[in-house]
């Protein structure tokens, strides 16, 4: 069994995964995405499985596609990375599979974006379709703010800001729910709490253990399955009496989950990856 881990940097999560592999006497290579050279014409790796922990969506997606085309199994596979790395694709897939999400629209010009925002009514949230950690996400409360933001995005934005992903703002109760799905099981879940409307861990949210209900379990597993399954963090908002999936992360950070729940997430991830390798 030849096992590889695609990494950008070694964070808490990757160290835990290395430890879990060592504890199971599994030999592995660390594949640094800033050093790797892939020759499309020649499979220059011979891995049975590669676990993706790159923090770059571009590198993840391109490497996973090449690995998969070479016949190398990956966790997650490139299709899952493609869907989950792009909020527009995620939304389209989830909505088509009947997964409840906040009302969401996409537009491609400042004029049409403003029209969509007005139709949705304030407050709305504008997000880059590709991006994470709450970066460049804006809550827009009125027409004046919308006009300014849309103009800024158009003028200053790069390719990733060439579309306007517009979502109805959900007045959640100061928290969201992060559910970690591994294969067909729920590994663990937490509330992420913040006084700020953004509840990303990278924005300083604190955590509290969350006891998974059958409703959340069913929703999370369905959402994970809809995007192709694997190791996935499903983020869920509470909107009064219903739950809405907000996004799904395909290379989830789990420091906060681990520290809050004590669950051996890295071990579960490695065991799941080994199962995939043996299939």
């Amino acid at each position: 069994m030849k096992f590889g881990i695609l990494v950008s940097y070694v964070r808490f999560e990757e160290k835990k995964i290395f430890e879990a592999l060592q504890a199971r006497n599994i030999k592995f290579d660390k594949i640094y995405d800033n050093e790797i050279i892939l020759d499309y014409q020649r499979d220059n790796t011979s891995y049975d499985l590669i676990l993706d922990r790159s923090i770059s969506h571009t590198r993840s997606l391109q490497c996973l596609k090449i690995f998969n085309d070479w016949g190398i199994k990956t966790v997650n596979n490139w299709k899952v990375a493609n869907i989950c790395g792009d909020k527009s694709l995620t939304t389209s897939v989830l909505v088509s599979k009947g997964i409840p999400m906040p009302h969401t629209m996409i537009a491609y010009s400042p004029e049409s974006a403003l029209k969509a925002i007005e139709e949705m009514d304030y407050p709305v949230v504008l997000k880059p379709a590709i991006g994470s950690w709450g970066r460049l996400i804006s809550k827009v409360n009125d027409r004046e703010a919308a006009e300014g933001l849309v103009e800024h995005k158009k003028t200053l934005g790069t390719y990733h800001h060439s579309s306007f992903y517009i979502q109805k703002y959900i007045d959640k109760p100061g928290r969201d729910i992060r559910v970690l799905v591994i294969g067909d099981k729920i590994a663990t879940a937490i509330y992420r709490k913040s006084s700020h409307w953004l509840t990303n861990a990278s924005r300083g949210a604190t955590a509290e253990a969350f006891t998974v209900t059958s409703e959340i379990e069913e929703l999370s597993l369905k959402a994970a399955e809809a995007v192709g399954g694997g190791i996935l963090a499903v983020d869920i908002l509470e909107d009064k009496d219903k739950y809405l999936v907000i996004e799904i992360n395909y290379t989830p950070e789990f420091k906060l989950l681990h520290e809050t729940t004590g669950v051996d997430i890295a071990g579960m991830m490695v065991d799941y990856a080994m199962e995939v390798a043996k299939k």
Binding site: S8, I55, S56, G85, P128, I130, W133, R135, T251, E253
Partner: peptide, 10 residues
């Protein structure tokens, strides 16, 4: 440490 890039995340 490297600066955060636009496509970085989880």
């Amino acid at each position: 440490a490297p600066k955060e890039e636009e496509d970085w995340g989880e």
